[in-house]
Lab assay of single mutants.
Amino acid sequence: KPRTPFTTAQLLALERKFRQKQYLSIAERAEFSSSLSLTETQVKIWFQNRRAKAKR
């Protein structure tokens, strides 16, 4: 499955949200993903990867 190329605007929004909160609830994820027109899975995986990156 090819990787999702996120737009610059989407990445900025994701990073901004991540700075506020490293873990999203299911409801927050649903709302946030639709506002960015991404799937919930894409947002979930992005947050997982971003948390892993923050640990390094």
Rank of each mutant, 00 (worst) to 15 (best):
R50N: 03
K55L: 09
R51L: 08
L38G: 00
L38C: 09
T7C: 02
V43M: 02
L12F: 07
T7Q: 03
A9P: 08
Q48W: 02
T8F: 12
Q22M: 05
Q42F: 00
S35R: 13
L38P: 03
A27Q: 15
L12M: 15
F32W: 05
I26N: 06
P2S: 10
A54D: 12
A13G: 06
R16M: 14
K21I: 10
L12P: 07
A30S: 09
K17S: 01
K53R: 11
E15C: 00
R56G: 13
A52W: 07
T8L: 12
A30G: 08
S34N: 09
I45C: 07
V43L: 06
T4G: 07
R29I: 12
R56Q: 14
F32P: 01
P5F: 15
E28I: 01
P2A: 12
I26R: 07
Q22H: 06
W46G: 03
K55T: 14
E31C: 05
K53V: 10
A9Y: 14
R16K: 13
S35E: 14
S25V: 00
K1G: 15
L24W: 06
L36E: 07
T41M: 10
A9F: 10
F6S: 01
Q48N: 04
Q20S: 10
Y23K: 08
R29L: 15
Q22A: 12
L24Q: 07
E28W: 02
A52C: 13
T8W: 06
A52F: 03
A9C: 02
K21P: 01
F6M: 03
S37Q: 10
S33P: 03
F32D: 04
L12R: 15
F32R: 07
K21L: 04
L11P: 01
R29Y: 15
R50T: 06
E15Q: 01
K17L: 14
E28V: 00
E15R: 02
Q42M: 10
L24F: 02
S37N: 13
T39C: 11
A27M: 05
E28S: 04
K17D: 06
T4C: 04
R29S: 14
R51Q: 10
R3T: 14
N49S: 09
I45A: 10
F47W: 09
F47E: 03
Q22Y: 00
A30H: 11
Y23S: 13
R3H: 15
T4L: 07
R50D: 01
F47V: 03
L38R: 01
T41H: 10
R56M: 09
Y23W: 10
A27R: 02
A30T: 10
A54E: 14
K44T: 11
T8M: 12
L36N: 04
E28Y: 00
F18R: 03
N49I: 10
R19S: 15
A9W: 06
Q48G: 04
T39W: 01
W46L: 00
E15W: 04
E40D: 10
